[in-house]
Design a protein around this nucleic acid. Structure first.
Lengths: 209, 209
DNA sequence: CTATGTGAATTTATTCACAGCA
DNA sequence: TGCTGTGAATAAATTCACATAG
């Protein structure tokens, strides 16, 4: 196998976690090997899409046979740089923040929320799942703790200043749950999830006329 | 203005809630009118993208001037069918489910979670934000209550059966937070949000090499 | 002059269709 | 024979660039 020099579509990267998740669950269900066709049915993606996506990174399957699930999972983990545990900090210990800290799915990809911050004096000092809530003024410790990823679950009006503080603390990746666009230096990656926005599309699709 | 017959890109629909949100907040900040350029900076979308997106539905702006924010918000609400309150049911009263029930953003788009279900006998009968948690076996009442939208926040292994029950109860739109692909009749719209999947892309983007 | 609205050009992503290999 | 890997074809989405209207 030799590597060609093709730009990798963002959409491909978006699907890789989905594939990894599918492979992990197939393994748990006792499968060892799978074809792109079967796998496509399992994860809801067209089979040639799946083969094309993999092809950007190498040849992971065996013609006439399919893919070794375990081996493929390792390959995708490697592509996504998920081979080692990634520490993350969460800012905003409200309802959503608490839910995310306890969210079981993060473990599957090797994430560990090791620091939690809030600006509410009633919350500072208390614990969520054994993690002490710290004053958001102390975000600077992230640099020392070598935490590169920040998760923002603060109210909208505090999102930009929180992002600024995270960037100042050396964070290079921000997962933003606040419903707003935040501006960061171009060496910082922001992914925004607007939960309500997903729901807001529903009536368009389900209402006749 | 006369309507042409062009297919509306899914991506355009995806951005409309973002636009609506931005307009509502601009109004709250006291603005009455905005150009596509300024609005693009505000919501993080290219200005010609914004103009193109609007153009699928009509001519909402004034050349040389810009857009009347209030009027544009009403137009987008109309397109997304958000003019009336939409009732929704939530299934799975765990951490994430509870956070979503309390999520302030749903109100902005006119959603109201009026029914909550769980299968845990310890939770059934208790209340979350004044809403009594009902036995998931009673999902059938959704038809009577005329609830069309279901939000799934149950564990992965219960997601498909929950979706089946929702469909049986007459639901035509499902917002699925479980990390799996669910199969439904083609008259039902499913939008899946895999929270961990977003985070899983981060190391790829922020890790050098 | 200014900023919209929109065809045309371009870029990006998906699907087809089949050669190539086990 | 069966399923991958991949160029080529197609489709979808974005951006350009400018005519057009206030």
């Amino acid at each position: 196998m030799y590597m060609k020099h093709k730009r990798i579509p963002d959409e491909t990267i978006r699907r890789l976690p989905l594939y990894l998740r599918g492979l992990v669950f197939l393994l748990q269900e006792g499968h060892l090997s799978v074809s792109s066709e079967k796998f496509g049915d399992y994860v809801g993606v067209n089979s040639s899409q799946i083969r094309k996506d993999f092809s950007y990174f190498g040849e992971f399957g065996v013609r006439g046979v399919g893919y070794d699930i375990r081996k493929l999972a390792i390959e995708i983990k490697g592509i996504l740089k998920l081979n080692e545990i990634h520490k993350a900090a969460l800012i905003g210990a409200g309802n959503l923040g608490s839910a995310i800290i306890s969210y079981p799915g993060l473990q599957l990809y090797g994430f560990d929320i090791t620091a939690v911050f809030d600006n509410n004096t009633h919350k500072i000092g208390k614990k969520i799942r054994d993690i002490e809530i710290l004053d958001v003024a102390k975000l600077g410790i992230l640099k020392k703790k070598n935490i590169q990823i920040g998760i923002i679950t603060v109210p909208r009006n505090a999102a930009q200043e929180t992002a600024d503080a995270l960037v100042k603390a050396g964070v290079t990746g921000i997962l933003n749950f606040s419903p707003c666009y935040i501006i960061v230096p171009k060496n910082v990656k922001v992914i925004t999830i607007d939960i309500a926005g997903y729901l807001a599309r529903m009536p368009y699709y389900i209402t006749a006329g």
